[in-house]
Design a protein around this nucleic acid. Structure first.
Lengths: 214, 214, 214, 214
DNA sequence: CATGAATGAGTGTTCATTCAT
DNA sequence: TATGAATGAACACTCATTCAT
């Protein structure tokens, strides 16, 4: 029962993409509408014209991009061919995959979470977090009922580690490259490497957090 | 043999504190020098007078605050009364303690890491990261030599989880409160609660990462 | 084969004229962009919008005005109906006429020559000087070949006297009026008077400098 | 009957000298009191403290420096051993000598004359001009009475040429060097060369202007 | 007598937005 | 629908001057 996705024209999407790219690196205040217009190859006035304001453009970025970052778990729950831990692992892969692929947007999210103000944006983020939390909760409760997972699991804390680890890895890629002497690895290969590393790492952590009785 | 800490006057520190507070929440570009001057209760011109520029003020924030966020490990290494894992646990406690206490500054660090540009600030951060990595490396290698820890440990990845988890917790405190029905817990108590939670959680994770053979 | 003149819009020219007027009297540093905007009846931001910066506006003033202050000598050289000294006299008339008419711009030039720095502006001035020197050189060499003028003529020094005399007269008009009891002469008439005076005076001086063997 | 020269302390003179140097090249508005203080090696506050304001400092520059630029003619008039034209020549030498020697101050004067406002400074300049004009008038009238000079002499115009030529030469020294291939001549030698050139040139011009009946 | 600290006005420039077409 | 022109507010910073000692 998702709310109907807002339709954006091709040109609007071009602006949104440009905005995402610049917001990710320079932040909202560090990016001017002129920068965005230039990046998108359109007239400055178009931004106000299409979106009303710079703020509304940021909201449009969220509207457009959050669709891609939702974790879908429904089909997974119904699948009897997979063990509970396998389902969790698939979910981790899915999560890592999506956030590595949507790095720019994820960077924006990290920034926005630092602002302590209730805005439409913070509402978006909250909704997304809750949705993702709910998805994983379902899987875990399922596993607990099936006896695969231990009883006392702090799911929020577990999610914090997952989101935090991926976020931190995204923000410190260069440091990671340097520390592992991977400066010369081509970018696409490095991204694949990163995904694999994070995936394995998180699966190990989750396995422990879900099954190991402290 | 640390380089001699730059001495700031009382008024300079007041400005630095005000700047830290505002940079943490609104970011560098989202904070005007007038905001800072107002927060610090001083004239705008004093910021240029004392620090030269807004950028230099940010650097001063880093100079002033990084001293508090360095992990000290030297004494720990020499201490024979503690097991290797106990030393790691102390280090975790130390780290969590410092970053919860210096939340504002930590928020600034999170933001700054998102900027992909080499600046004096990114230099500060890099130096801090390397220093902290080195500290923990020493402890872990010590434990490996003593046979307490397993051989193949991806220390950078482990640190990523530690820093990421704490960072993510800091940025999503409100969400954590809400999810755990802790909205009414007084702030100081909540911070203590958070510290405890993170400490125990990270110790568990580290124990696994350091000893459990996958 | 002059380089194509930069086209300025009507509004840009209004700004250039306002700038010229104020730069002439108060100098570059003594004139604020707000002064110029007010004089031109436009918004301050328009100056950056149209010219990029205050400096660039000054350059635009030079681009726009130097076209009018170039001495043209080509047709004069080919004219066989005039004696060499007549040609020189026409050139003097032309020069005086132009610099009296373009007093404001000439004042700016005088100021800018006082600055000992290589800037686009000093480049403009140098180019203009060289061009004018070349023009007069051609005429004089022509006269020397024809036997009308003497051999040893210090053309640079001669030009210095011409430019210096006109410049000095422009800057001390009020003094001149006062010393000659011309305070009540209407401005247009006075300007005509000045032109005539300078013209006759310089023609006499040039005649001597060109023909009199010391 | 000169008014008693204002006495300046050694430190005040240091400030005045620094101010003169900077005003000459960057102009009044282009020079900050901090620049002057730095150049003079004193505290910024000293300028207001000693002179009251930046404007008053400029006036002090004029008070201090105009003494050196006044033409003295009294003794010359009484000297019976010199012909009238010789007296004029001495005066020209004196003038050229003084203005080449006091180039910095002369540059300031050129600038200030461009400002069309009645200020204490413009008063200084006017007074100086009148005084110098009076001096030369005396000499010329003396020569006219003695029959050495012609009747109709436009003394103001003649002075305009003298002052203008020297001024223009001062502002375009670099151009002069370049045009005469003197780029490599050492500065002191070049200044001597300039003085000689101007002196001979002006003497020739004056001789004509004073004796030649058009 | 001298000066570091402090001030409020002013600088040129950039900003997101709106206007006129 | 689309856009160059235009705007007023805000920006970081510098200014000459004054204050407190």
């Amino acid at each position: 029962m998702d709310k109907p996705a807002i339709e954006f024209t091709e040109k609007q999407i071009a602006i949104i993409d440009a905005a995402q790219k610049l917001f990710a690196v320079h932040g909202f205040d560090g990016t001017s509408v002129r920068d965005i217009a230039h990046e998108a190859g359109i007239n400055v006035a178009m931004i106000s014209y299409y979106f009303g304001s710079k703020e509304k453009l940021m909201e449009a970025v969220f509207e457009q991009k959050t669709n891609y970052t939702r974790i879908k778990v429904e089909n997974l729950l119904l699948n009897d061919a997979l063990s509970h831990i396998e389902k969790i692992n698939i979910l981790i892969d899915d999560y890592v995959e999506k956030f590595i692929a949507q790095q720019e947007f994820h960077r924006i999210m990290i920034r926005e979470q630092l602002i302590e103000k209730d805005t439409p944006i913070s509402g978006f983020i909250l909704e997304l977090k809750k949705r993702n939390l709910l998805s994983i909760k379902k899987l875990i409760h399922d596993g607990q009922k099936g006896g695969s997972f231990k009883k006392n699991i702090d799911i929020v804390l577990m999610m914090t580690t997952m989101v935090g680890t991926v976020s931190q890895m995204i923000t410190s890629q260069r440091f990671y490259r340097e520390m592992n002497n991977l400066e010369d690895m081509p970018e696409p290969e490095f991204q694949k490497h990163l995904k694999k590393k994070l995936s394995v790492h998180l699966k190990n952590l989750f396995k422990v957090m879900l099954t190991y009785e402290a």
